[in-house]
Each structure stands twice: as structure tokens, then as C-alpha cells.
Design a binder for these strands. Structure first.
Lengths: 170, 170
DNA sequence: ACAAAATAGTACATAAATTAACTATTAATT
DNA sequence: AATTAATAGTTAATTTATGTACTATTTTGT
């Protein structure tokens, strides 16, 4: 059976048009363009699922990721530059997100004792609770979509994505 | 050799923290969370690369995608709902993007003769030219990042992404 | 034939993110 | 020691996107 049949109907419209575009300009690789759009659509679907869960808690995927990254090291601070790198956001965006999370009582900022350029960020107890509460729901409603794949397929997907990311991130 | 070594340094920070999070809540699958973040980071890297090319032409990835989808069928109109589906954007966003593209002279709107709810969208000649000009540059600077993979690896990546997208898009 | 449901597209208030510039501070260079 | 370069974080203007509600129109159901 052609595995390519198992795609959402909405992506078929995307793929059909990419096929036609690449007929008009044959030097393009249909497959490369399809892959780009697959990544975009999958990211949007994952983002949407996360948003649906987090909206009720007045959070969004970016602010939740920030909390989760701080949750990883409850006894250490991160600074905004580290958080920017860990969450894939710009430093300006991290400032904005931290403003919101501090206002919600989920995160605490403090001056760094050793370097006055730096700010120490720590999860507040309420933030820790929020992550504890939300991660199981996210596992059910978002993370588990990957369980449609077998273990060896997940391993392969991870390797392939990492190689493309390495190539594209410089 | 461990293929997982070939990741950008910036993603190592992500993966390290995900590992620590999943030590605190062991029911989570490190790999599923890693996969979600891989997709997010890859999408951001691809988006950034596209933006770098398109910015000089006062376009962005979403407006270019709209042009490209119309470019696929130069002799037929699309309506905003079809374009929304083809580009993975909301109908409200498509209205906004079309406003911009009409203002730039790259796209034309007309009433649909058969159905007064509908609008016909067509590429203007200038839009056609823009796509012709930009696709080769995008191929060089964006699409070709996937050429780090062998053909069978691209096939596998496509299949796996489609299966996860099918699972997550409903 | 008429009413109800659904679709199409837009408007607008609000949310989210980017970009460039800035000040303060530390690190590196001379 | 002094100067230059780099880093850290923020600000604010601008860009991009969402969510909800709306009107107009067509389709569906009775």
C-alpha cells in the first residue's frame, strides 16, 4: 500500500499545487518543497494542540516552554539568554514572556550577584505546580501523536530531523 | 558513530533540559518531547532562511506561499478558502495577506460570477515574475538543506512526517 | 416555498513576535 | 591602565497573526 495515501485531506491540496509549481519550474525538487510544507503544517498542528490545552491556564506554547525549561533545574537559575536558547526564542521575546510569567506569579527574576548585566530566572512554586499539572495533559493530547510510529521509526525520525536541523541552523 | 552527535550546539541545551524534565516526571517520553522541539526548531530555521531571502522583496514566507500556490494554476482562480487550506493559514490571515499582495500589484481579486459569497484570486503578471525570480534563490538557500539526506532518507522522512501529521491534524 | 444551517469573506480588537536601537556592564585587546 | 569589543537585557515601534463576530449568500432540510 502506498504510505503516501495516509495524509490529511488538507495536505493533499498543498501537495497537488507543489507538483504543479514544479512542473512550471522543473529544476525544483517537489520533494524538498513538500518536506518544507510538511514541517510547517506539523508544527502548526502541534502548536494548535498545545494551545488548546494551555489556553485554559492563560498560557501559550512559548510561555509553557519557558516554564518547562526552568522546571528542568529547580535548584538553579537560568538567565534570559540561556532561556532564549533553550526555548528557541529571541531575547526580546524572552523579556516579554518573562514579564507575563512574573506578573502571573509563575516565575521570579533577581539580579545576578556576580554579573550586573545578568538576570537570574527561577520558577516560582506556583510555576512548578503548573508544570506538574500540565505535563500529563500535554502528554495525552500532544506528545502521544508520535506514538503512531514504532520505536525504530521514532529513532529514524529523530536522526533525520537532527541532520536537517544541523544543516539549516547555520 | 552515534548519529545523535550531529546536532547544533543550540539544540543540545534543549535536549539536556528535556532529559532533566523527564527525570522529574518519568511518565513522559523524552523522545516525544524532543521530537516536538525538533519540529519547532527546524520550522523556525527554515522560516528564518526563507525570510532572509524574501525580505529584500518585501515579502515573507506566508505571502510568498500564497503567491506560489496561485502560481501553480496560472489559468484558474483560487478563492480565499482554498488558498487558506493550501497555505495552512486562517481565512482571516488570508484576507490580510491578500490585501497586502493586491496593494503590491502581485495579486488580483474579482467577484466570482457564479457565487456572490466568493472572491476569485489570480496572480498578476508581476506576481508571476516574482515567483519565477524567487524560486531559484529559495531552492539554493532553503530547499537544498534537505539534500544532506540521501534519497531513501528523504522518502522515509516524508512518510514519517505524513503519518504524524495525519495523527495530529484531527 | 420557506426556514434553518452552512459557507464565504471581512472587520476589528487583541495577542504575539520581530526588529533595531539603546544603556549598562564585563571581557578582551593594546 | 585605558580603550575597544562583546554581551546582557530591555524598550518601543512595527509587523504578523488570532479570535470572534458579523453580513451576505448559498445549500440543505422540512
Amino acid at each position: 500500500m502506498n504510505q503516501k495515501d495516509t495524509i490529511p485531506a488538507s495536505f493533499r491540496a498543498v501537495e497537488d499545487k507543489i507538483n504543479l509549481v514544479c512542473r512550471r519550474i522543473p529544476e525544483n525538487s517537489v520533494q524538498n518543497v513538500v518536506l518544507i510544507h510538511l514541517v510547517k503544517h506539523l508544527q502548526a498542528a502541534l502548536h494548535s494542540r498545545m494551545s488548546d490545552v494551555l489556553r485554559e491556564h492563560e498560557l501559550n506554547p512559548v510561555s509553557f516552554t519557558a516554564l518547562m525549561m526552568l522546571f528542568s533545574k529547580p535548584n538553579e537559575a537560568l538567565n534570559p539568554s540561556e532561556l532564549a536558547e533553550a526555548s528557541g526564542e529571541s531575547r526580546a521575546n524572552v523579556t516579554r514572556i518573562c514579564d507575563e510569567l512574573v506578573a502571573k506569579g509563575l516565575l521570579e527574576r533577581a539580579p545576578n550577584p556576580d554579573d550586573r548585566r545578568r538576570v537570574d530566572l527561577r520558577l516560582a512554586a506556583a510555576g512548578d505546580d503548573e508544570v506538574m499539572k500540565l505535563l500529563p495533559v500535554l502528554r495525552q493530547r500532544v506528545h502521544n501523536v508520535f506514538n503512531v510510529l514504532e520505536q525504530d521509526e521514532k529513532d529514524q525520525l529523530e536522526r533525520l530531523l537532527k541532520r536537517v536541523l544541523t544543516e539549516s541552523a547555520n
